[in-house]
Simulated scan of single mutants.
Amino acid sequence: MKFTVKKQDIPIGKLVEVSVSPKIIVFNNGEQIFAVSGICPHAKWPLELGFVKGQTLTCGGHGWEFDISKGNCVTNPGRDLKNYRVIENQNEVIIFDE
């Protein structure tokens, strides 16, 4: 399955939900776009309500931290987010759920 999003709908520095089922969020750091599952494995908090500093996504609910580029949980290793493959072309971002 794949999801297509217009690049203009992913502002730099903002977490954006692009799919509800499965819940997928994206983040544009100005150089690259990352896509990960959008629910915190700790307490099922919606991760688009969190924030990103550097490559660390922090859950707004209880502060769990994840590497946005890989989905790895920094706070509790092994409780990782699903990482989605992203391809950027001219005006679109394609997210693959593989």
Rank of each mutant, 00 (worst) to 15 (best):
F66P: 00
H62A: 01
H42S: 07
F66E: 01
L47K: 08
L47D: 12
V52Y: 02
S37R: 08
A35I: 11
W45V: 13
G63M: 08
A35T: 12
A43K: 13
T58I: 01
W45G: 07
C59R: 00
L49P: 02
T58E: 14
F66A: 00
L57G: 04
G61S: 07
E65A: 14
L47F: 09
H62P: 04
W64A: 01
G61K: 03
F66N: 01
F66L: 06
L47R: 09
G63D: 10
G63I: 04
G61D: 08
F51C: 13
C59Q: 05
P46A: 09
T58H: 02
P41W: 06
W45F: 15
W64N: 01
P41G: 09
H62W: 09
W45K: 09
G63T: 03
L49R: 14
G50S: 06
A43F: 10
A35R: 06
I39K: 14
G50C: 05
G38F: 04
P46L: 09
E48P: 07
G50P: 06
C40R: 06
Q55Y: 12
I39N: 11
T56R: 10
P41F: 06
G60D: 11
H42N: 10
E48C: 13
A43V: 13
E48Y: 14
G50M: 09
K53W: 05
T56G: 01
V36Y: 02
F51N: 12
P41K: 06
H62Q: 13
A35Q: 08
H42W: 04
F66V: 03
L57R: 01
P46D: 13
G63C: 01
F66G: 02
G54C: 03
W64Y: 10
W45R: 06
G50F: 04
G61H: 04
G54F: 01
Q55H: 13
K44C: 13
T56P: 02
V52F: 00
C59S: 02
G63V: 04
L47E: 09
W64C: 02
P41I: 10
S37Q: 11
H42L: 09
E65C: 13
S37W: 08
I39G: 01
F51D: 13
A43E: 15
A35H: 08
I39P: 05
K53S: 12
G38C: 07
I39Q: 09
E48Q: 15
G38S: 11
A43S: 14
C40P: 07
T56W: 00
E65L: 02
C59Y: 05
C40A: 12
